[in-house]
Write a protein that binds this DNA or RNA. Structure first.
Length: 405
RNA sequence: GCUCCCAUCGUCCAGAGGCCUAGGACGCCGCCCUUUCAAGGCGGUAACACGGGUUCGAAUCCCGUUGGGAGUACCA
């Protein structure tokens, strides 16, 4: 395999639930990396789990990226030369790859149930929770026929290479998994539908992805399996470029745990509703595992992409600190022009079902920008003049509109 | 259990062997400014997990311990 000098990265979420703040951070790093290097960002939807994926969620993902101002070069709604970009539309491609893998002997049919695997571990005196034991690798024709005779349906598993698997991680340096520590993964379900374990590496290979930056939560299982599969894909001519991996530190919530989907703080819209501006949120997110330079933490998206070359990413997990996020956001708000802020305020006023008077808004905005942490609070300021006019006869802006900027 | 990852103030980041009596930011605590709340100014609080090496010299390199996290699905 060769190393392709042009940078091609991807953002490949599954459309389940609302846009997750951790996911957005992952996308941000990929976006910044692509923009910095003048490369391409491929936006791909991994919707191979019909039971969990939803159209609403997909639409929210699009809206999320647009709101944050992260543009992509290939993807749904846009096209590109490696499409389609929704995995649910790529069935024939996967079927073709599977046929080749099968012909080359890289995959095999497995009939074992989890119970049978555990029973075998127990019988051999091993920990029953060890995972799949690669038992079906050496099934004979007659054994296979017997299982089929019972009406069992097989999953397709990848024959993992019998060597240590190691790679140089962009964030962590050398990482090695000993041979035999990762069981043969299932690539295709018994019902014939491909799994993420197959589609993700296949698409990365076929879309010529050069760098894979994603969350650390995927580190223990995914890279070994993917590298194993990549070798097989190279063998059958599907993969030409071995991507470089970079595993980004986890974003944690208030506890010490990874941000959980049930926590409202993981939902991107939570921040938008609370008055975060995209610039502010992006700035804060970038601070989680990275820094633009010594003793500096306020910067624009443009400054981010100019500086973000993929080096210097911290390997340790970061806690999402809402207070600091708000503080960074507030600095961005103060950087906004009065007109700009006023127009953004309008959205919030309208969303809150409040009427607004342009004159009042114009008067309150400078004060709001000067003082408040986010537009939601400015909104209260914008209402203030009404109260004051009634109660104390003070003019719009409460006398605070003196031009101090 | 097994595999992998991580380890500097409460939190995030700086520090890539001597510049460190460890710096910035958020938070917190004072004071100043201010009709309120903010914002702003000034000051303060607070950390290199532990133990061994290597070295003239270690927050920085190596090993171990401890602690934390993640994964261990026909989810992604």
């Amino acid at each position: 395999m060769t190393t392709d000098p042009a940078v091609r990265v991807r953002f490949s979420p599954s459309p389940t639930g609302h846009p997750h703040i951790g996911m957005m951070r992952t996308c941000l790093f990929n976006w910044a990396f692509a923009r910095h290097h003048g490369g391409q960002l491929v936006f791909r939807i991994e919707d191979t789990d019909a039971a969990r994926d939803s159209e609403e969620s997909y639409q929210e993902l699009l809206e999320a990226l647009r709101w944050l101002g992260m543009d992509w070069d290939e993807g749904p709604e846009l096209g590109g030369s490696y499409g389609p970009y929704r995995q649910s539309e790529r069935s024939e491609i996967y079927a073709d790859v599977v046929a080749k893998l099968r012909a080359a002997g890289h995959v095999y049919e497995a009939y074992s149930t989890n119970e049978e695997v555990e029973a075998r571990h127990r019988a051999a005196g091993r920990d029953p929770k060890l995972g799949y034991d690669n038992f079906d690798r050496q099934l004979t024709e007659s054994q296979r026929a017997a299982y089929q005779g019972e009406g069992r349906e097989a999953v397709l598993r990848l024959r993992m290479p019998d060597q240590d698997i190691s790679w140089v991680d962009m964030v962590r340096g050398d990482v090695t998994f000993p041979a035999g520590s990762v069981p043969d993964p299932v690539l295709v379900r018994a019902n014939g539908k491909p799994l993420y374990t197959l589609t993700n590496p296949v698409d990365d290979a076929m879309m010529r992805i050069t760098h894979i930056m994603r969350g650390e939560d995927l580190l223990p299982s995914t890279p070994p399996r993917q590298i194993g599969l990549y070798r097989a894909l190279a063998d059958i001519g599907v993969a030409t470029v071995m991507p470089t991996y970079g595993h980004l530190p986890l974003v944690r919530g208030e506890g010490n745990k990874k941000l959980s989907k049930r926590d409202e703080q993981t939902n991107l819209w939570y921040y938008r509703e609370r008055g975060f501006v995209p610039e502010g949120l992006i700035n804060y997110l970038a601070l989680l595992g990275w820094s633009i330079g010594p003793d500096r933490d306020v910067f624009s998206p443009a400054e981010l992409t100019a500086a973000f070359d993929g080096t210097g990413i911290s390997p340790n997990p970061a806690r999402f600190d809402e207070k600091k996020a708000e503080a960074i956001n507030a600095q961005h708000i103060r950087l906004l022009s009065v007109d700009d802020l006023a127009s953004r305020l309008r959205t919030h006023l309208t969303a809150a079902g409040l009427t607004y008077d342009p004159a009042v808004l114009a008067a309150a905005t400078p004060a709001g920008r000067r003082a408040d942490r986010h537009p939601v609070r400015c909104r209260h300021d914008a209402q203030l003049p009404f109260r004051q006019r009634r109660g104390r006869g003070t003019g719009p802006g409460g006398g605070r509109e003196e031009p101090r900027h």
